[in-house]
Write a protein that binds this DNA or RNA. Structure first.
Lengths: 342, 342
DNA sequence: CTGTTAGCGCTTTCAC
DNA sequence: GTGAAAGCGCTAACAG
């Protein structure tokens, strides 16, 4: 309840001296600085957020908009929201949560009322109505994920293309010559952000470049166990799998493999690409190039803070390079071509 | 960018008239009210949150604190955070997210700076450091879940006791005479909020009252498939199960049942108590008395808003009655006592 | 290096 | 029913 005036009186200095002593925005004699800090501590002073925001024209709040449709993966999106929040705190910002119906309207509202200084957009769909809104908002906005049209938007995403390439390279280096991709369900590809397509293309491209035999299967969420059959039908000689699919399909695939008596990595090597782990469950036992919130979110928040503070100019897509997590699911191909093993 | 002064000029009235016309806090001639609204719309006016908060001494922001340890169920807690956010919007409040390390410190900060008008505490542990903090904060706080000592706190939770009773009653009414409880892992019971204990006690109590044979098993997360064996060893005649356990255990149990050729509900009836569904996955195919965020969160937010606006006084535990969701997993006992079937 | 002061844009008495 | 004006508590020129 103490105000800056109380602190000034207590420390025997002026109000502005207190303000500057606390913000460090101009140099203060060590002596008076200590006196101010002591007075503030004695009175339990904390600047009122609203007064500060009004005077400084900055709320130190970032809005996070994430529609969270019934079919989006809640645990993954919680991980993203957490990562954004943690990154924001590192820059002294708090995060406001805008969900469901309010994901769109809340963006408008928090921009119009200056509730938030900037907005992070999560759960981005290919044709996301928040993209057009962002272009017309006059408030810094950063997308985590890419809508179909990124024109005029500032976006950050994992470099899925590089991740897919690296997955194929890894398998190729281990001597695999026939590789399969377990991709997303067809309807997800239509609706979601375009990263599944980017992965499919990059996978095929690099496999062709390396002269590998390859194929892809898109699972059916109602019959996830069929993917393995489908893949073996398409690619009887397959020795390695790239997984970029919903967790439920990955789990089903694991079961299908063990039912068939196929061991990872002895019979089949596996690498996942662009999958987000549920922090509250044990991770899938596969080598991964994950879509890790800890990778993209800090970059997105840094970018947003740069925009807010005028240090950066808007627009542009930042693709974050993937990191490789080893879990021992890649082994040399069962029947390697001796001269080609790296 | 338009201010209230712009609107006043445009409408040819005073600033206070604009304020009252928009807030409705005092009666305004229909004519001038319309004129003000039109002017505001024409200028695209939206009151600045910071100015409003400073003058009104209210930020219209509720902080949501949820530590989210690595082992907490992220999807469930996202569902709670969403439900709180949606309920808050219904009262014209936004929600600020405080996670991880900042869950505790953020409470202090948002209270001291008047960043938030009130705080909702999620992910409550039995001995939660946020309980003592809440008592000393001088800022309205509502817990969703019960810490061990609720003295001086305002709490809202599902009535787990009633839920356990109702589950046993349902099975008894269907003619079951031997029932098992699959509870939480032992270490969870020690650390978490005390609801698992409340369920165990209520289960045993009501089963005794009804003269049922009963037993409980606590799963081991590293060997979830063992629970069915354990239960059948303890209770060979079991015809019905009450499930109040992590989702992973429930899934493992489902698998164990089908491996043994036991059909639900033909061979075994099942009811879940106090479990939270992951909205992004298909629900467990069992009758439920769920811990549904949609039940507790609106009550908690109503309570908090009552505290903020001075309509309610703090303290007290509100237990929300459970609702029953039928999914056809309860059938009459296989070997009913004819005279007792209801 | 420090103090004075003019706002920031709104809510809310108080007067009419 | 409406208007004038005093703050809310802080930041950031501007002056010294």
């Amino acid at each position: 309840m103490a105000t800056i005036a109380d602190v000034a009186r207590e420390a025997g200095v002026s109000i502005s001296t207190v303000s500057y002593a606390l913000s460090g925005k101009r140099s203060i004699t060590e002596d008076t600085r200590v006196r101010v800090l002591a007075a503030a501590a004695r009175l339990g002073y904390a600047p009122k957020a609203a007064a500060r925001a009004l005077a400084a024209r900055r709320s130190q709040i970032i809005a996070v908009t994430t529609p969270l449709h019934p079919d989006t993966d809640h645990s993954a999106h919680m991980a993203f929201a957490m990562a954004v929040t943690t990154a924001a705190r590192d820059h002294d910002y708090d995060t406001l949560l805008l969900v469901q119906d309010d994901a769109l309207e809340g963006m408008r509202r928090s921009a119009a009322t200056s509730l938030a200084d900037g907005i992070v957009v999560l759960d981005v769909a290919a044709h996301d109505e928040r993209a057009d809104l962002a272009r017309s908002l006059g408030c810094p906005v950063v997308f985590i994920g890419l809508p179909a049209d990124t024109g005029g938007l500032t976006c950050v995403d994992l470099d899925f293309r590089a991740a897919a390439h690296e997955a194929v390279d890894t398998l190729h280096a281990a001597g695999h010559r026939t590789v399969g991709l377990v991709s997303q369900p067809a309807d997800v590809i239509a609706r979601e952000a375009n990263y599944p397509l980017r992965i499919e293309q990059a996978f095929a491209e690099r496999a062709d470049e390396l002269g590998l035999t390859h194929a892809l299967v898109r699972p059916d969420l109602d019959a996830p166990h069929a993917v393995l059959d489908d893949l073996l039908r398409l690619l009887p000689e397959v020795t390695a799998i790239v997984l970029s699919t919903p967790t439920s399909v990955a789990v089903a695939l694991t079961e299908s493999l063990s039912r068939r008596g196929l061991r990872v990595p002895d019979d089949l090597s596996v690498v996942t690409v662009g999958m987000t782990a549920d922090p509250s469950r044990p991770p899938l036992p596969f080598d991964s190039l994950p879509l890790d919130p800890a990778l993209t979110c800090p970059v997105a928040v840094d970018t947003l803070v740069g925009l807010i503070e005028g240090a950066t100019s808007p627009g542009g897509v930042t693709l974050v390079p993937p990191t490789h997590v080893s879990r021992g699911s890649v082994a040399p191909a069962p029947v390697p071509h001796p001269t080609e093993v790296v």
